[in-house]
Design a protein around this nucleic acid. Structure first.
Lengths: 343, 343
DNA sequence: TATAATGTTGTAAACGTTTACAAATAAATA
DNA sequence: TATTTATTTGTAAACGTTTACAACATTATA
């Protein structure tokens, strides 16, 4: 209420102790919710804290051996809806535990790798969330050796060992293609993601498996390499649609490239879904608002973030814990971008 | 090279001092590039640091009264290309100064406002970058009173006082509309941004001024309210295109809503630019790859981030410095989404 | 060469916490 | 009630730095 800015000159644990008439150790116990404090003293401390507008000094706390209450987030870049959703989930979960988020870009890390990771692990952060690091092998190894808490998001890890969160990429791709097959499509184009990422590989494998199951021979000309960008989706679709025997449906490895396919289709005078069926992957917000609304494979992005954060917090609180990889289910969301093939 | 992980057990300034045969104060001087250290000792320390793999403990450093080398970034959400570009600029600039980035969401701040801001200012961060906070008045005031270093990005501030970075929103909108007028358009639709933001207000004013200059009476039915989202751009364009006297051109307050206009135009069977000219604002990456490529008003997003970060660093290093608002120029980027009106 | 001025180095205290340990108090047992 | 045991509280040291100050070494000036 009225305790606005007396705080400006730094209220310490000692000020609180004096105000409450106890020792500073007792104040520390109250702050950290430790046992062995009588209810009346506890209340006195709480009151004093409120009155003085005390806030803990994290630096001092973590220097003294406690937790820093900071989690590091390693990302490539923040400019995608995809990332935004995951980070939102992470942030919500961390906020609930009053943890803060430190941002590290992979760009920086690769520069002075080991030193940088050491800097992070040396006190600055209690744990690390690695969001799709392209080639994390080297510092992953280092983190592992130092037994520093970390969780991988949407990445296979070095050997599938250790805590991670991902989704059923193979299943998702597989069911998307099965859906198209069910609609009567036989020539189904595929635009890959960035093939350095395991998610892209898994989706490709899911596509191929679905065709194989259906007894359709794999045609490499129907697969073009992309990189999860709208631009590459556009050019890839351009190639596919210019084929002598063009595909009647295209499965794009993510929504962004599917939007590129939409552009290309329009350029070629094809209407979706009448002349071409289209499926994406991710279900980012735009997928529902685009026209025609995009049929796509939903990844529970926000939930991925939440769960990863929760796992990390668990490990931080109990370092002996050995958590396994969590794989969340994908789900085919049927909208207006596909239709049955007419003969 | 070979100093991989001896670091695991925490190398301190004292270890370095022992190794180099000097006192720890000297080591501190070397680390902070202070004067009064003989070259040979300086080198001895540098060598020892390298040999031991020393990295500074930020917590201890800032507790002892130094800088934390952390800058806080306050944002609403990370899911837009727009934000991604700005943050990239910020990150690059900070990396060069070996500053780290702490992420704070406005969502969190509003919850326990003053306390939260105090927490940040009390040691955790040396300064704050405020990226488009919707209504920052209350904590802005608090920051100002505490003389805590901060820089506003793309926001007017309480009274236009204090350090900030923004762009010529009015000019940009004005020149876009002038361009359309030059092409012969007279009925020009406008889709606003989120009118709680000053940028949206400025762009609207620029639009109105251009019409007025050209002696065209302002027609309120040609202005529909949006919120910078693709979705609202779509619905807004729907309204405009269904008008008995539909506009021959639309100026959307940002690229995302312009993409919505594209969808709507297609739905109505209008082809851009033949039947409808369209201009956006921002020049995000997709603007160039979309089809037809979008004519738009470019904001130097990455540069905004860079400059804001640089200003903040300046203020941190010299708190007496009084920096003024920096307004960067926008630029009309002409692509394929507009054409001259035929009579 | 003696002295002042300047440059270099080291010692000690401080920053705000946590935590091991000791002391004091209260409760339980004989 | 005397003694043991458990609970509560306080004191002191530590975490890894920065920085004021004092001490020492060097160079410049007279």
């Amino acid at each position: 209420m009225a305790h606005t800015d007396r705080t400006a000159e730094s209220v310490t644990i000692i000020d609180v102790a004096r105000e409450a008439g106890v020792s500073y150790a007792t104040v520390s116990r109250v702050i950290n919710n430790k046992a062995h404090v009588k209810p009346d003293k506890r209340n006195a401390v709480l009151d004093a804290m409120e009155r003085l507008g005390y806030v803990v000094n994290q630096q001092a706390r973590s220097l003294a051996g406690g937790r820093s209450h900071i989690v590091g987030l390693v990302v490539q870049n923040l400019g995608s809806t995809w990332m935004g959703a995951i980070v939102r989930g992470i942030d919500e979960e961390l906020a609930a535990a009053s943890y803060d988020l430190m941002l590290y870009t992979t760009h920086r890390i690769s520069a002075r790798e080991t030193t940088y990771v050491t800097t992070i692990t040396r006190g600055m952060a209690d744990g690390l969330l690695l969001l799709l690091p392209r080639d994390p092998a080297s510092y992953l190894e280092s983190l592992h050796r130092q037994r520093f808490p970390f969780v991988l998001i949407d990445h296979q890890g070095i050997d599938d060992r250790g805590p991670a969160v991902d989704v059923t990429n193979w299943d998702g791709a597989n069911s998307a293609v099965c859906y198209l097959l069910g609609l009567g499509h036989r020539r189904i184009g595929f635009i890959t993601g960035n093939l350095e990422m395991s998610s892209a590989l898994d989706r490709l494998a899911g596509y191929r498996a679905a065709l194989e199951e259906a007894g359709i021979e794999f045609d490499p000309t129907l697969v073009v390499e992309g990189d999860y960008s709208q631009q590459r989706g556009f050019t890839g679709a351009g190639v596919l649609l210019s084929l002598p025997q063009r595909p009647t449906a295209i499965f794009a490895s993510n929504d962004a490239s599917a939007f590129g396919v939409m552009e290309a289709a329009r350029d070629h005078g094809f209407q979706i879904p009448r002349d071409l069926s289209l499926i994406g992957f991710d279900d980012i917000a735009e997928a529902a608002t685009v026209h025609p609304a995009l049929t796509t494979v939903r990844q529970p992005l926000e939930q991925m973030g939440r769960i990863a954060a929760r796992m990390l917090l668990q490990i931080i609180n109990d370092p002996t814990l050995v958590l396994q990889r969590v794989t969340l289910p994908t789900e085919l969301v049927i909208r207006q971008s596909c239709q049955a093939l007419e003969h």
